[in-house]
Computed example of a mutant assay.
Amino acid sequence: MNDKILRQSIVDELDFEPSIDAANIGVAVDNGIVTLTGHVGSYTERLAAEKAARKVRGVRGVVEEIKVRFAGEAPPRDEDLARRAVQMLDWSVSVPPNAIQVKVQDGWVTLTGEVAWQYQKEEAQAALKRLSGVAGIINMIEVKPAASATDVRAKIEAALKRNAEVEADAIKVTVKDAKVTLEGKVHAWHERNLVENAAWSAPGVRSVVDHLTLT
């Protein structure tokens, strides 16, 4: 698929997605790499635009440069937004109490702290992404190592073999210092995401390096 056709497919997908007002989103494609520019009304809409672009067949990567502009009322003060963010984290049953610290500057929320599982890191961010006034979230929460490298690799490989959509024998998993490196070949972007999700699902994983190639 050439870049011109791919760009039109992405524009159509953005227009099709009901949660996105695509009127102010620009799309450029260069050798399968998509750059999204322009502005939207919320952080949730910004995430939705990136997700929609990634769904289109032929996309090799996405550079997301969309800005959040709040219409109507002025956005909340940083201190008010920080207070509401802390409350949202306190209400989340998936986030350990007092484990996360919140910093807000110009509407951007930075999360720091330590948790035991990757899903807790993701849930902390998910709890805040719909919060009114958030321009963006920087998730710097660390996941504590909770298992040996051998155990982590075995759990990831077992998860890959259970998934019917993944050719597990084509994937090489290496674990060192709680960092997982994925190598091998996959046939589609969604398959790549499945492999990454399997890696993140293992306890104690702190980072995932994706060296998978699309065939």
Rank of each mutant, 00 (worst) to 15 (best):
D3H: 03
R7N: 08
S9Y: 13
D12A: 14
P18W: 09
D21F: 04
N24W: 08
I25Q: 00
A28K: 12
T35W: 12
T37L: 01
H39K: 14
R46L: 10
L47I: 08
A48M: 13
V56R: 02
G58D: 03
R60A: 10
V62T: 06
E64R: 11
E65G: 06
I66D: 02
K67M: 07
K67S: 09
F70Q: 08
A74S: 11
E79Y: 10
D80E: 05
R83S: 04
L89W: 01
D90I: 12
S92C: 00
V95P: 01
P96N: 09
A99N: 10
Q101G: 11
K103H: 08
V104E: 08
G107I: 00
T110L: 07
L111P: 00
G113I: 01
V115T: 10
Q118F: 12
Q118L: 05
E122T: 09
E123Q: 04
A124V: 03
Q125V: 04
A126M: 07
A126L: 06
L128H: 00
V134Y: 01
G136S: 03
G136H: 00
I138M: 07
A146R: 11
T150R: 11
T150M: 07
E165H: 15
E167V: 06
K176P: 08
V180T: 11
G184H: 02
H187K: 13
H190M: 06
N193P: 11
A202S: 13
G204K: 00
G204D: 08
V205I: 09
V205F: 13
D210A: 14
D210P: 08
L212S: 05
T215C: 10
